[in-house]
Amino acid sequence: MTELHSTSVGPPVAHHFEDFEQEHEANMLGMWAFLATEVLFFGAVFVAFYIYRSAYADIFKEASRHLYMSIGAINTVVLLTSSLTVALAVHAGEHKARRLMVGLMVATLVLGLAFLGFKAFEYYLDYQEHLVPAFNFAWEGANPAQTQLFFVFYFIMTLVHALHMIIGISVLARMIWQARRGSYDQDSTAVELFGLYWHFVDIVWIFLFPTLYLLRQ
């Protein structure tokens, strides 16, 4: 759909831009604005969580102790590492190192899948312990309703995060295929944009992990 035209310097740009710099800046600002939207999207559920966290402090602490902190911690390491690989991939893209860039993108993809694998395993363990609201929630201790509320938020927040991961991984898979064919040799803006998105998803987890797992004492 988008016609390309060439300018005197740099890679071809879409018809409605004057030059590469303008296109690049527009794309970057667009992603930042989108991430601002995302901050408010997650912000709403974080606010709701923390209101109940302060209202039912002891109950939520007790509920939090039933999460697998070890799996959460491993996933934090996995995701932080993937942020490193994606940052290096962006760097490699800027230096026209195609093979290195593809390799780092694949590493990011593998780490992302590993995260989802661990997360799925954790959900399975949660299910075994009857902690899944609406499916098999059963709570022997006091205050089952408020405890369930904790797990409702746990599942909503981690599932929305996982959905962002799945979207990111799907986009990345397609980009790896494109990158191998040299689509980003002249212009690696797309890799840079993906890097921003991936870092954002990572940062959401950096807030989710302490919010859900660590606030238990």
Binding site: T37, F41, F42, A44, A134, F153, I156
Partner: peptide
């Protein structure tokens, strides 16, 4: 900046109504 908050609120409504959990 405001629309995403509505989006999340509607998600919470839909979850509460579908799964009968008390958000």
């Amino acid at each position: 900046l405001a629309t995403p908050v509505l989006a999340m609120t509607l998600v919470l409504i839909a979850v509460e109504r579908t799964f009968h959990v008390g958000i």
